[in-house]
Amino acid sequence: MSAPTSPAATESSAARVRRRLSGRAASIAAIVIAVVWTLPTFGLFVSSFRPEQEIKTTGWWTFFTDPSLTLANYRDVLFGTASQGQLASYFVNSFVITLPSTVFVVALAALAAYALAWMNFPGRDWIFLGVFALQIVPLQMSLVPLLSFFSEGVSIGGVQVLPAWELEGAFQFTTVWVAHTIFGLPLGVFLLHNFIAQLPRSLFEAARVDGAGHGVIFRRVVTPLIVPALMSLAIFQFLWVWNDLLVALIFAGGGVETAPLTVRLAEMAGTRGNEWQRLTAGAFVSMIVPLLVFFSLQRYFVRGLLAGSVKG
């Protein structure tokens, strides 16, 4: 992302921005924004410990004048249904869906990005342009065709080209993995391409002089250098898949065998939505994992976002 400006000009404008952003007024503004931003979540958190009747009749702030604590919402959410501990299986489903979807996207995107950036083959730029353009296609448009591809196969002019995927047992997850991978790849390829394309050409030339092929270069040279980028893509993809409801509803269904946590949470309010107080606790239960992932990987995340922009 190097604009054709002289280094001095870039530095001075960057310095100016930095000076403005670290002033007192800017700090206060940042704090105010952060507080306003966090307040609803905090209110939800307080609500999750309040009794049902109070959640439904008064605002969360009344908690401070008239505190009454209960864990009933968490009990309902975690062990509420007749078959106790059911939430655990949805939790497992969420992991089983999320982890492979993340790994597939990161691995495939890295390989594709390397190929698009450093391998010369005809039509390379057009393919990259196509991948880039695919990002603007809303995934909702492809739900029905993709679902019919899975459940009916492909037939052209009445001739069955590909059979339907008749998946049983644990393989039922395959369709969700494939769907998430497909939906995640365009952004992944685009992000990693920008990273990999910026690695210095001399590195690759040196490696090639030493006799390394594309496989070795990718494994030994490129991968270690783009770890921060891989991590930030992984976090993005993990959070997106973990929080996803739409794709899971359509490709995983709502059964206890395949449905992730989000599907269960959506059901939790009951047929007529009269148990909506459970959603307060449910939201925090489902938030734990994304928070853990984010905090444990956040140093990569920040490094990944900044990498490329502040090199040298």
Binding site: L143, V144, P145, L146, L147, S148, F150, S151, E152, L249, I250
Partner: peptide, 10 residues
């Protein structure tokens, strides 16, 4: 969802 499922052959 029922519409999507039916359209998608599922």
């Amino acid at each position: 969802q029922i519409q999507v499922k039916v359209d998608g052959g599922n």
